[in-house]
Write a protein that binds this DNA or RNA. Structure first.
Lengths: 99, 99
DNA sequence: TATTCAGATGAATGGCTGTTCATTTGATTC
DNA sequence: GAATCAAATGAACAGCCATTCATCTGAATA
């Protein structure tokens, strides 16, 4: 059980929350402001903010001031093309290929 | 926030534990008995058994009696080939393509 | 500069979850 | 059938985490 597996589990834990996963999927489409996310997901502002902090600290998302609001986007380094054998969860594929 | 996202988060939660993730990665190679897993991962029998139960109930793994021991293998339906845009966690890729 | 709007932060709380220990079940062997 | 080996189960506990509420920061506008 290498340390790589440990940190990977940690990242999966970040994504294993319904709200955070939904945020990431929305940001996979395009950047959005917090207010938009809050409306789209029907999640109260404060709670969403806490979740966004977790995503930030995990390096999954990045922020950018936009006047009064803040624009969230998926970290560019997180974008990749998948290929190779994977685990099919039905909802998504998890692949370890080439690692 | 659809119910699909909820159940997906649930499955990711199952994989977000270091021990369970390590088990799945080993079973991705080939089926193994509990004793083997326990030795390979340095995880005590009872604890491993609890984790295996979680994996079983999530439908991720299947079991097969083999004399005194039990053979665990990755559920065939979980095996797929990944392709399309994905989120790169460094340790693995998560892809939602075509869903 | 006072007010308002957008978002972040901190403390408090309740529920979930990983771990341990003791016990049990199921299958083999003596 | 008693003893042994492999794995599963249940109860108990402790630490973690999502949620809520109240408050604060920071930027725009009047």
């Amino acid at each position: 059980m290498d340390s790589q597996t440990a940190s990977c589990a940690g990242l999966l834990k970040v994504l294993s929350d319904e709200t955070r996963l939904a945020v990431v999927r929305l940001l996979l489409e395009e950047p959005r402001r917090v207010g938009q996310l809050s409306q789209d997901l029907h999640v109260e502002q404060s709670l969403l903010s806490h979740h966004l902090k977790v995503l930030r600290e995990a390096g999954l998302v990045e922020t950018q001031r936009d006047g009064k609001s803040v624009l969230y986007s998926l970290s560019p380094s997180m974008r990749r093309r998948a290929r190779g054998e994977a685990i099919d969860l039905g909802c998504c594929l998890i692949s370890f290929a080439g690692r």
